[in-house]
Structure formats: structure tokens, C-alpha cells
Computed example of a mutant assay.
Amino acid sequence: MINQIYRLVSPRQFEVAYQDCSVHSDDVVVRPTHLSICAADQRYYTGSRDKEVLAKKLPMALIHEAVGKVMRDPKGEWAVGTPVVMIPNTPVETDDIIAENYLRSSKFRSSGYDGFMQDYVFLKRDRVVPLFPGINLNVAAFIELISVSMHAISRFEKTAHSRRQTFGIWGDGNLGFITSLILKKKYQNSRIIVFGKTPYKLDYFSFADDVYLIDQIPSTLRIDHAFECAGGIGSQYAIDQAIDHIHPEGTIGLLGVSENPVEINTRMVLEKGLTLIGSSRSGRVDFVNTVQFLEEHPDVLEYLEVLVGSVLTVRTIQDIINAFEQDLTTSWGKTVMQWEI
């Protein structure tokens, strides 16, 4: 069959490409239904990545956060119409030590490899996770982002010491919201403190025990462990504050992505015996755990609905452009495209 792929060919310009795909393969065929725009997609769309990077990776279909419905399953395990979340990370090998999302050989959709802006997506069976009935598909559209937080917390749990009375989360955006929400649900007897720079965004963190503006943190405040979810140049200041307020031998999880190197006060890292854990992306096990977690905690799903900033129906390439442009002006939450193109 001929599949239509909607590729970014240059900043703010999309074109349709046609690809001949075999429906006789062992792949599961999924029709995307809800796609969520990520900041990484926007960096390609606006051309804010280095010119060398853009020249190397474009043309390319964007979007790595998406759900869809099964259109064909050669093994008959999933009926046509079954809602599923699609996993963008695509490993080509396995390793007994290194997780699939850290293998340098793995491909990642919408990062040098076509994302989910397609009529149909052909996926290996292990790149699909079925969703449970009744899930809000506008929230499910960004399960990939939720799985990133889930992955980072799982790495923390394998490394950090057992004193987990107080957590500090730096970042009042989507990632900070999701990470602090999961921590609050997993560690209900712990104190969850969120640090941000925008008062109205901090108002959304109603589940947190305390919130502070980053320029109003009490000098005596101490935490056992920290998660940096700021990203950009803000990650440098977030890490610096976390180092100042964390107890000795605490753990700092690093999630925020920065295009440029940031400075870290290694002297205090050494003096306090701190552990810094980097986390990036996620793998199948994180998606499975995330879907199970959301099914077991419907109240978490209700909180996550706050992150649905806008939902736009997409039927044309101009609709795609409009969605990306509107997302650029959105100060809170995720932009979801209902994919009807």
C-alpha cells in the first residue's frame, strides 16, 4: 500500500511524501489518532537547531508522542480499532547492561527518523502497548512524556538511599508537573516541594505539599533528593539550588535538556557526596509501567487533564502549521492534534 508521510522539509514548511509499505509484513499497522507536540518538535519546526543538524535530519516527519488504533495485526492478538500507545524508541540490538533508550544504535522517531505524522505507522509488535478502556486519549497522547518521568524515577529508586522524606522538584512546566505528581502518588507520606519561577504555573501544583518561587526559597530548607526538570539555561540554576539545599549523600535526577553545556558546582557535589543521575527518553518497560500506573490511579489521570492546553483537529497541512504556531503561543500545557488528515 502507499502510505502518506507528512515531513518537515525546512523550518515551517511541510510536504507530503509517499512510501510503498508492505501489508504482508509482520508489523502491526496503526492509524494515529491523537498526537502531542513536544518542545523538541518545535525546535525542528522553528529551525532553532544548528543548521548542520537540520541539514542532516530533514526532511523528517515530526512527533514522537502519539496514540492510535490498530488497523492490522498479523497475529490477531489485537482487534481492529484497539487503542494503543506507540513507542518512538526503536532499538536494533539488545544489551544485558545498557537499556534500549541509551544504546547508541537505537533509532528515535522525530529525531533523524520519521515520527508519527503519517497516515499509517508500521511498528514492530514490541513498539505497541494497548491502552485500557475509558482512558482520556488527549492525555494518553503524551504518555511518552509521562514515561520519561517514570523512567527517571525508576532509575532513582535503583540508586538512591532509603531516606526519602522530602523531595524537591525544580521546574514548573509539563515535566516538573508530571514528575512531582508521580512522586506524590508513589511516596504519599513524603513531602513534595516544587520550585518554579512563574506564580500562576505553580498554582496548578495543588497536590504538592509546598511550592516556592526560586528567588524565595528559605535558606534553612533541606531536602533528601531532587529532580531537575527545568531544562535550558535554567537547568544550571536549578542544579545549583538543588546542590545548596540537599542533604549530604542525596541524589539529583537530571531530566531537563539543554542545548548548551551548563556549569555544575562540583566542589559541593564532592563535599556532600552527591549522586547525579542522568535520564533520557524511555523504553518499552517504562511505557508498560506507565499505562499500568495510570490504570491503577485514575485520580492521576484527572490531574493530568490539566496539562491538555488545547486540542486541534487536523485535516490539512495548513492545520498542522496552525497547530504548531498556536503551540508556540501556549504558556501552559500540551497541544494535542486530533489526527484526521
Results as ranks from 00 to 15, higher is better:
residue 306 V to S: 10
residue 20 D to T: 13
residue 171 G to T: 07
residue 66 A to M: 07
residue 257 V to T: 10
residue 262 V to T: 10
residue 336 V to E: 06
residue 235 S to M: 10
residue 197 K to M: 11
residue 187 Y to V: 05
residue 115 G to F: 03
residue 338 Q to T: 11
residue 227 F to C: 00
residue 50 D to R: 12
residue 161 H to M: 15
residue 202 L to H: 02
residue 277 I to F: 02
residue 111 S to L: 14
residue 65 E to C: 01
residue 163 R to Y: 11
residue 277 I to N: 04
residue 36 S to W: 05
residue 330 T to L: 15
residue 70 V to N: 03
residue 68 G to M: 08
residue 189 N to D: 13
residue 57 K to N: 08
residue 181 L to Y: 00
residue 148 V to D: 01
residue 19 Q to M: 13
residue 333 G to C: 07
residue 287 F to V: 03
residue 7 R to S: 07
residue 308 V to I: 09
residue 51 K to L: 13
residue 55 A to N: 12
residue 102 Y to D: 01
residue 281 R to Y: 03
residue 184 K to I: 05
residue 142 F to V: 06
residue 167 F to K: 05
residue 61 A to K: 05
residue 109 R to A: 02
residue 245 H to V: 14
residue 115 G to I: 05
residue 92 V to I: 14
residue 265 N to V: 08
residue 263 E to K: 14
residue 37 I to D: 01
residue 204 Y to H: 15
residue 224 D to R: 04
residue 337 M to P: 02
residue 253 G to M: 08
residue 60 M to F: 08
residue 275 T to K: 09
residue 249 E to G: 03
residue 293 F to Y: 05
residue 247 H to D: 14
residue 156 F to I: 07
residue 233 I to Y: 06
residue 166 T to Q: 02
residue 234 G to I: 11
residue 17 A to Y: 13
residue 129 V to F: 07
residue 244 D to E: 15
residue 147 S to R: 01
residue 4 Q to S: 09
residue 79 A to D: 09
